[in-house]
Amino acid sequence: MNAPLPEAGDLVYVTRAASVQFVKPIWCRVIRVLDWITYDGWCWLDVYQLDAKGDAVARRSIFVQPAKLESRQPVGRPEQRRPQGVRRRPDAGGSRPVPAGRQPGKLVRGRG
């Protein structure tokens, strides 16, 4: 039976057990599972490789055994929070284009 595949956004620890190319283990954030033909029990993943602070330093496609991936939070790493919304800086005044025929700051009323 094959292990479940990781999903986009999963944090995985890739070691030599998952693939012999990873003599030095790395942390990765999964972007997607690639739909490529592989050997049974193996898959291709698009990932962001993470540094010690959890920042993405490289985008990679890796060939691994999903059953051997470790999915856990790194020790000492705070839980990640999702942004609640984007705050916009107030307009610095005069940076918006003014439509032709209008003067900045002047109210134009309709006639009727």
Rank of each mutant, 00 (worst) to 15 (best):
R87G: 07
R60P: 00
P90R: 09
I26F: 08
I26W: 02
C43T: 10
N2K: 10
E70V: 11
D55S: 10
R60Q: 06
D10H: 15
Q103T: 14
G112N: 12
Q73T: 12
A56L: 02
P4A: 11
W36Q: 10
I26D: 04
F22V: 05
A8Y: 07
E7T: 14
R32Q: 13
P99D: 07
R72H: 14
D91Y: 11
R72G: 10
G101Y: 05
R32W: 00
G101C: 04
R87S: 07
V98C: 15
K53M: 10
G105M: 07
K68F: 06
V33R: 03
S61H: 08
P104R: 15
R109Y: 15
A8L: 03
V108P: 03
V64I: 09
V86D: 07
G101R: 08
R88T: 09
D51P: 02
L50V: 06
A67Q: 05
V23I: 11
A58C: 05
V108S: 14
E79V: 13
A18L: 02
T15L: 04
R59Q: 12
Q21F: 11
R88L: 13
Q49C: 09
G105I: 08
R81S: 13
V20Q: 14
G110Y: 13
C28D: 08
Q80V: 11
R96I: 05
R82S: 13
V47F: 07
P25L: 11
C28G: 03
R81N: 11
P25M: 13
M1P: 06
P66W: 07
G101S: 02
F63K: 04
A52N: 09
A100C: 05
R96C: 08
W27D: 04
D35N: 09
G54W: 06
G93C: 03
I37F: 07
Y13P: 06
Q49E: 14
P78E: 15
D55M: 08
G9Q: 14
A18P: 01
P78Y: 12
V108Q: 15
C28L: 04
A58Y: 05
V47W: 03
Y13I: 06
I31E: 13
I62V: 11
V86K: 10
A100G: 04
A8M: 09
S19Y: 05
P66E: 00
I62Y: 00
